[in-house]
Amino acid sequence: MIAINPKANIIMCSAMGQQRLVVEAIENGAKDYIVKPFEESKVIEAINRLMMNVNKTI
């Protein structure tokens, strides 16, 4: 996705125990991550963090 749109805002969703994949995703451009099974509040928090950072760069 980053190759297509370097400004893409990606939130990684990963199963517990896959920390290596989360780190790799962040290194490759993901902006945040949430761990499955996830709670609605955690998804909203991740989106809000991302939006706060996007608004800071505008």
Rank of each mutant, 00 (worst) to 15 (best):
F38A: 13
S14M: 03
S14W: 04
G17S: 02
A30K: 00
T57R: 15
I47W: 07
R49S: 00
D32I: 04
V35Q: 07
L21G: 11
A30S: 00
V22N: 01
N48H: 04
L21Q: 13
E40Q: 15
P37K: 04
I58S: 05
L50G: 02
C13E: 03
A30L: 03
E27I: 08
M51V: 08
V35K: 07
K31R: 15
R20E: 11
A3Q: 10
C13F: 09
I47S: 02
E40Y: 12
L50Y: 09
R49I: 06
E40L: 15
N5E: 08
K7C: 00
M16F: 09
N5K: 02
E24V: 00
L21C: 12
A15E: 04
A8W: 09
N48E: 14
K42A: 07
V23D: 08
V54L: 12
A25F: 05
R49Q: 07
N9C: 11
A3Y: 09
M52K: 11
K42L: 10
I4T: 07
N53Q: 15
M52G: 03
V54E: 09
V23T: 08
A30T: 06
N9L: 14
E27R: 15
P6K: 06
A3D: 12
N48D: 10
I58F: 11
T57Y: 12
K56Y: 02
V43Y: 03
E39W: 11
S14I: 04
I44H: 05
I47T: 03
M51A: 13
Q18S: 10
M16W: 10
V43P: 00
N9I: 12
V54P: 00
L50M: 10
M51K: 15
I4G: 01
L50D: 01
R20Y: 06
A8E: 10
F38R: 01
Q18T: 09
V43A: 10
E39R: 12
E39C: 03
N9W: 04
I47R: 01
K42F: 05
V43K: 02
M16C: 07
I47N: 00
I11Q: 10
R49Y: 04
R49N: 05
E40H: 14
M12P: 03
R20S: 03
P6F: 00
S41A: 13
P6D: 02
N53T: 14
A15R: 01
M51L: 15
N55F: 11
T57L: 14
M51R: 13
C13V: 13
Y33M: 02
I4W: 05
G29Y: 01
S14E: 05
Q18V: 07
Q19V: 14
I26G: 09
E45W: 06
V54D: 07
K56D: 07
E45F: 12
Q18G: 00
E40W: 08
N53L: 15
N55Y: 14
A25P: 07
L50F: 08
K36G: 06
I4K: 07
I34D: 04
Q19T: 14
M52N: 12
K31T: 05
P37Y: 09
M12K: 11
I58Q: 13
I2D: 01
K36S: 01
D32F: 01
V22I: 12
E27N: 15
V43T: 08
Y33E: 00
K56S: 11
T57V: 13
I47Q: 08
A46G: 03
